[in-house]
Design a protein around this nucleic acid. Structure first.
Lengths: 219, 219
DNA sequence: AAATTATTTAATCATTTGTTTAATTTTTTT
DNA sequence: AAAAAAATTAAACAAATGATTAAATAATTT
């Protein structure tokens, strides 16, 4: 009797075999295809058959490895988010770094993460709206934001920076760093730039944004 | 023989009857429901049956009045876009208004348009990515942008504003005005604000953004 | 090598979903 | 009021789609 095993290794990525060196497993192929298609088109516009054919595997393997389309989507999401969320949380929560250092690092973090892959931020952005529950802040993120907010408010009390609602500081920082990646194809087209020029502009912003933030915040 | 008429008044909104005063036509109900649902969830996540039940009408009426789901979507889109695009185009192209006046007006335009309806900008944003062809600039918009760009470059030549790529000026302006509406629910939650407070913040930005832009652009 | 387990496949199932049909009711026109 | 047109409905259709099955193949273990 063939005793099939549903979802062989959903939680552990081990499955290290002796001679798989250059061979890409079906599971990996599915994940890559899913990442690509979900990123481009979102959950509902992508059909399981699209993923199967993009991955070059049989349709049934998708359910064999990931149980359902939704679980595959959640998996891709989770992978995309976890690392990035922790980077941001660590940065915001760092007590040994002042506001302007954090602005510099955040600006750079976004460039490194999304400069070569702008659709990824769009994907995250869409998921935020479609599955906000995946974005409920854990304790870590909440504490980290508290640290940052306190830093902002302290600087205001000491009159080191202009007095304004801390949300404005965050909105401006986030706007200037994230928005260009979200609008990538349109800015590219409207400003008549090629990929290299666009990337150069985004790289410029890594140093420009902290300068602009200083100008905005200077008392 | 009952000679049914497909798509009674797709192009003309006339259909003025004698005594429909307070009664909302099925067509209007469908449009409202479609606007609401498409705005919230996008094209693919919304099913025709969702629209029918939200509108409280028979499923077949959707096709009777709008031929297909896609055509209904296009209709909603077109309505959402046309007016707003013209406002922006007119503003950008106005030769009798200088850069900073335009910044002030744009900032206000966004607040008036999206302050009470933030999902609308999200909808437009999603459509930009899902149906970029609907956003191909007409001649009007292209010329208008040219006017604005020329103004920016002139000011730079005259050393009235700092020298930087005009795209940065546009990106910063657009970022600071649009982004908060796109992130509305998240900013609200994370900054622990209620709707009134959030609206007040957005209203503050109407005057703050032009000031910040001046700081950024001051040579 | 035999037995066991894991992977893969083609075919099929069961819903969902966009659309259409044909009949019925309501409204308007004659 | 009768006739015609328009609006509405319930039912059904056809295609798409997520998921499952059972059998076949490959890999691993004993």
């Amino acid at each position: 009797m063939t005793n099939i095993v549903l979802c062989p290794n959903l939680s552990n990525m081990a499955s290290v075999k002796k001679e798989q060196v250059s061979k890409v497993s079906a599971e990996e192929k599915i994940l890559s295809a899913a990442r690509k298609l979900f990123t481009e088109r979102g959950l509902h516009a992508v059909k399981t058959r699209d993923i199967a054919s993009e991955a070059g595997i049989n349709l049934a393997l998708l359910n064999y490895y990931f149980r359902s389309k939704e679980m595959l989507y959640a998996r891709v999401m989770s992978e995309n988010l976890t690392g990035f969320k922790r980077s941001v949380s660590d940065l915001f929560g760092n007590e040994n770094m002042d506001l302007f250092e954090k602005i510099e690092h955040l600006s750079e973090l976004y460039f490194l993460e999304f400069g070569s892959n702008p659709e990824l931020l769009l994907f995250i952005f869409n998921t935020m709206h479609q599955n906000p529950e995946l974005f409920l802040d854990g304790d870590g993120m909440q504490q980290s934001r508290m640290v940052l907010f306190k830093q902002i408010e302290d600087l205001m009390k000491k009159k080191k920076i202009k007095k304004m609602h801390p949300a404005h500081v965050m909105m401006n920082l986030m706007s200037m760093t994230m928005f260009p990646y979200l609008m990538f194809p349109f800015i590219k087209q409207r400003a008549k730039l090629d990929d290299a020029q666009m990337l150069a502009l985004l790289k410029d912003r890594v140093t420009l944004i902290p300068e602009w933030m200083k100008l905005i915040l200077k008392p």
